[in-house]
Amino acid sequence: MEITNRNLKEYLKRLVRSTIFWTIAMLLFSIFRYFALKNEIGISIDPNYEGFYQLKDSLLNFALGGFLIGILYANIEFLIDKFIAQRSALVLIILFEILLTFTAIITVSNLVLSWWVKNKNIPYVVEPGWWYKDSSFIPALIYIGISIVIYSLITIVFEKFGRGVFFKMLIGSYKQPQETKRIFMFLDLTSSTTIAERLGHQKYSQFIQDFFYDLNEIAAPYEAEIYQYIGDEAVLSWSYKKGVYKNNCLNLFYAFKKKIASKSKFYLDKYDIIPEFKAGIHGGSLMVAEVGVVKKELAYHGDVINTTARVQAKCNDYRVSILTTKSLLNNLDIEGRFIASIVAKVVLKGKEKPVQLYTLTII
């Protein structure tokens, strides 16, 4: 039930994002269209309909149209992302989204226009294929197609840098290092060398692709950002507030286990292996800065990153699948949800003070 609710939450976020974008996009189209029509040679507008109220009506109508397009597009995007996106090239996904959106808009426009003509007694005949004969409808579709491409590119940027980060990069907030507080998880595939030797490099690469694709499906509902992929290891990150909220940083790990278990037949049929993984989790204050010129990205620097990597490495030593530090555990609400067992108090490589490590069992 929890995963279903989180998927619903992710869908609603897409819906809000899509409706806002398309409402704004169609408002802009309305403005361009209104002033273009007034200045187009050969077009005359009845003086009774000129002025502010005509523009206001145009804005309201196109805003409503944009809102409805946003609802349609959010559903199309969500379904494509869930069932098609895994093995399709980005350009094919965008073209498919454009095709489905056009089909939906034309279908809905046919229904609305037919109803409007019939119920308002408008002396207009709705002929088959009216939309491609209409000189104003085709430019609208072209505009919508371009908007889909722009929306897709914006979404890619947001997915790479995280929500809110892109705007801060635009205004140069990270040109100078800033202190932030985050939680990191280093998640590593178990026995990767043995698996790679058994499968061969080509099939192993496909195996890693499938493994990380399943991880991505789990990351979004639990507010996680994928910071890096390093070979067979993924580094996930949360703002500290989002990571501790409803134990997101722990629940993701067990949700991913459940996801892999539900796909065990798929992995056995395709690779004859069910992937297993281990994770180290830790959080605290560190620095973030924009690095690079040709390939810009955000980089985190500080003891938190190094400690999390060392914690994950200790999973093999103590033969457990998850380890976290006491400092992070103290900020999580695990009562009635997890059982925490102390594993060791160790001095991690590169540190002077001992760190208490805990493993967890879900109740």
Results as ranks from 00 to 15, higher is better:
309 A>N: 01
243 G>Q: 14
305 I>A: 13
229 Y>S: 10
226 I>Y: 06
251 N>D: 14
286 L>F: 05
300 Y>K: 12
215 L>Q: 10
287 M>T: 05
256 F>G: 12
267 Y>T: 08
261 A>R: 15
301 H>E: 05
223 E>L: 04
297 E>D: 15
261 A>N: 15
288 V>H: 03
238 W>I: 04
209 Q>N: 15
307 T>W: 01
297 E>K: 06
217 E>M: 08
302 G>T: 06
243 G>M: 01
245 Y>L: 11
263 K>N: 14
290 E>Q: 10
236 L>G: 12
221 P>W: 07
232 D>H: 02
260 I>M: 07
248 N>E: 06
252 L>V: 01
280 G>D: 02
250 L>A: 05
309 A>C: 05
229 Y>F: 10
287 M>Y: 14
250 L>Q: 07
211 F>Y: 15
248 N>V: 03
234 A>F: 03
230 I>V: 15
269 D>F: 02
290 E>Y: 05
272 D>G: 11
247 N>R: 08
264 S>A: 14
254 Y>P: 07
306 N>K: 01
243 G>W: 00
206 Q>R: 07
217 E>W: 04
279 A>S: 13
283 G>R: 11
238 W>M: 09
304 V>T: 08
290 E>S: 06
252 L>D: 10
299 A>I: 01
256 F>N: 11
226 I>A: 13
210 D>T: 06
232 D>W: 01
286 L>E: 14
228 Q>C: 01
246 K>T: 07
281 I>Q: 05
246 K>L: 11
269 D>W: 03
